[in-house]
Design a protein around this nucleic acid. Structure first.
Lengths: 189, 189, 189, 189
DNA sequence: TATGAATGAGTTTTCATTCAT
DNA sequence: CATGAATGAAAACTCATTCAT
């Protein structure tokens, strides 16, 4: 069963580097010194492997998101900060996984996509709910269009898979703080 | 010469719908009732077509960005608002082009990518400069990490290619305003 | 277009010799000195080629059958003799085609099979109608179960693809006569 | 040892339904809840399994044929009737086996085919001998070309694996009678 | 007896690209 | 300008078979 995991890990790396379509099964197994047959012993298709990767990723995110949200000791503001940090550190830690997750979604077959899409929406709707609660209890500005703001927040964080390099000048923690500040209090004096 | 444009337009639509790798030259020419030979009369390769599309798109953005930035009558705040509106309306108006531009960049060959990447960075650095100027003249908060904020702003706008549907409840103009408000003044009361 | 025909002819030979599943596209094109790409330029799939072969074969049979049946100068007995000769000579002349037609039918995809099956039934029902008419006008025995007899006659003829060798002692004409005699007048003294 | 039989039975069913090439070892063992390893414990190869099936089938036929033929109380006419009934009821009773036997013979490897073919010929030659004896003792028409007639009789019966459904209007017994009548006395008034 | 992991040789199919006309 | 024919390299996937345990 360890081989299956190795294949998955290698696939994540290669999908992240070259993209899903540009990575062949041969590329993946060559790196591990096994054969294509072995791949198909563990996976029914290349798309199924992609689904597995997405599934794994979104599951992890949802679980950690719920740990943040379900903590009643936190204000809604703190929850938003937590979610921003969750996404940024995830992208920093598991760069390739994140790249696959955010960029290669459209290669999922319709069948597989349904489930994954639904859970990605869950994640977003959870953000929306936190915002909604925050508006109600006057943590956030009245009249906030929470659905669009949720998209905006996720844009800030998710986009970073495109460029963020955790070995650079700015640490994930610092970036999370910068983004949280921007979102919460804006940039004007 | 009109045929070349038709091919480009059709390619944008199909690349946008199905992705670059999933779209074959055959798919493109079938839709136009011409043959693959015709494609290769006008383009040297599939990748070159992609480059052309990217080139066209980023050129348009850069040109319009410079019209916003070079207008000395505007404050830096107004320039940021203008750039946000520029990106959002572009994504709304030319959905497929935008999808290709933001999603299929990594299919550019190294050679082609260099030029496009440089100009994408130019776009970002221009945003950074506006922010920098705004910090200096006290429109924006002191100590703002302008490079990261530029990435953040572009995240908010660019991510919308993933989800924004201009036929929905929110118009591009409204969305631009919502995002500009969030970025400039935040969401807390 | 000549190449397409060559491919079809070669396929018939090889399907006849080795069977459909045992014959690879590679086998077919190797024999002709072209490449697999060429095959897929002319055919959309291996199954489609099989369908084409079946289509061609049954069309030829049906056409010649109708020429026999529509000739009002003939008695029903003569028509039955004609159909027997039609099948036997066909199997003798186009051995491999016949083998493919009679043996490899179950490899047709459901979609393709429908049409072919319907036309094979047409052929059989035409035999049935001749028998029916012959019973009515007292050429054939009263009370004959014409549907079963039609199956019986076709069994006699079709089965010969399994063993008949037109280079042997018995010519197709002779065999047709032997079988017609057996079917029409039996074997008892 | 029961497992080996289960595998054989399941294989017959699947070979009958989908054909030999289209049925994988995996298909067979999946249905029984065992693994491919188990298959190779009992059989040395897929082809050997096919040979076993053919062997079993032809052995049964030959044995029952000899019981019919060796019974000196019967006329040759009665023997022919008996052989027709033998084949038809066999096809009716063991549909899938019969389908495999009559349709998938050409998948036997040369080595295996020799033995099976020889015994199939024995069956046919036995029919020929009955006919020959019948001609000699004037049960059958003088000058009958017994080799061809034997092929014809077997065509009538064997072909029925293609279409005969024992759940239909006509019972195996009835069909046997219809075919025997046709062969013995023909169809003309 | 039976399994589970792995293989390797093969299969069908796709498709960007070339080029003579 | 445009086509139709052909290619070749690579892709995903299949599956009978082996073998250590």
């Amino acid at each position: 069963m360890v081989v299956k995991d190795q294949i998955t890990q290698q696939a994540i790396i290669l999908f992240g580097e070259k993209g899903f379509s540009e990575t062949s099964i041969q590329d993946i197994v060559d790196e591990l010194g096994v054969t294509k047959g072995t791949f198909y012993y563990y996976f029914t298709s290349k798309k199924q492997l992609l689904k597995d990767i997405h599934h794994e990723y979104i599951s992890g995110l949802l679980e950690r998101q719920s740990r943040i949200i379900d903590n009643d000791a936190r204000t809604q503001k703190e929850k938003i900060i937590g979610i921003i940090r969750l996404l940024i550190t995830d992208i920093a830690d598991k760069g390739p996984s994140a790249r696959v997750f955010f960029r290669e979604m459209h290669h999922l077959s319709d069948d597989h996509a349904k489930n994954i899409k639904a859970r990605r929406e869950d994640f977003r709707l959870n953000v929306e709910k936190v915002l909604q609660t925050g508006v109600r209890n006057r943590e956030f500005r009245q009249g906030l269009q929470v659905d669009m703001i949720a998209f905006g927040i996720l844009g800030v964080t998710n986009w970073s898979y495109n460029w963020f390099n955790s070995d650079g000048d700015v640490s994930p923690e610092e970036l999370s703080k910068i983004f949280a500040d921007m979102i919460l209090t804006g940039i004007v004096e």
